[in-house]
Simulated assay, not measured.
Amino acid sequence: MTQLSDVLAGGDDPAAPVGVVRVLARHGFGTVEPGQLLAARGTLMGEVVTAGDLLRGALDAPAVELARSALAAPATQEAHVAEDDAVAAGLACAGGATLLAHPLEADPAGALGRAFAGGVPAALVSTVDGQRTLVVVGNDLDEAHGGLGSPELDEAAAAHVRGLLRRGATATDRTELAGVEVLVDLWVPVPSLLVVGAGALGEALAAQAAVLGWGSRAVATVAETTAAVEAFTDADVLVLLDHDPAFDESLIAGLRHGRGFLGALGSRRTQAARRERLLAAGITEEQLAAIHGPVGLDLGARTPAETAVSVVAEVLAVRSGRDPGALSAGRGQIGA
Rank of each mutant, 00 (worst) to 15 (best):
A9D: 02
G10R: 08
G10M: 05
P17S: 09
V20C: 09
L24V: 00
R26C: 06
G28L: 14
T31H: 04
Q36K: 01
V49I: 11
G57K: 15
P62H: 08
V64A: 13
S69G: 15
S69P: 06
H80V: 10
D84K: 14
L91T: 07
A94E: 11
G96A: 13
A97V: 14
L100H: 08
A101L: 02
H102T: 08
H102F: 13
A111I: 07
F116M: 05
V120D: 08
A123P: 11
L124A: 04
L124K: 05
R132C: 10
V135S: 00
V135D: 00
V136S: 07
D140P: 04
G146N: 05
P151T: 04
A157G: 07
A157F: 01
A158T: 15
L194K: 08
L194G: 09
V196Q: 01
A198F: 08
A200F: 05
G202E: 10
E203K: 06
E203Y: 04
A207M: 05
A207F: 00
S216M: 02
V219C: 13
A220K: 08
T221S: 13
A223P: 07
V229G: 04
E230P: 00
A231K: 00
T233G: 15
L238T: 09
A246S: 09
D248R: 02
L251Y: 09
I252Y: 04
H257C: 05
F261K: 12
A264M: 06
A264Q: 03
R277K: 06
R277V: 10
A289G: 12
I291E: 08
V295D: 05
L297G: 05
D298C: 08
A308P: 10
V309L: 15
S310M: 10
V311L: 03
V312A: 14
A313L: 04
E314M: 10
A317F: 00
P324D: 06
G325K: 02
G325W: 00
G325A: 10
L327P: 13
L327H: 13
S328E: 11
Q333Y: 09
I334S: 04
A336K: 14
A336S: 12
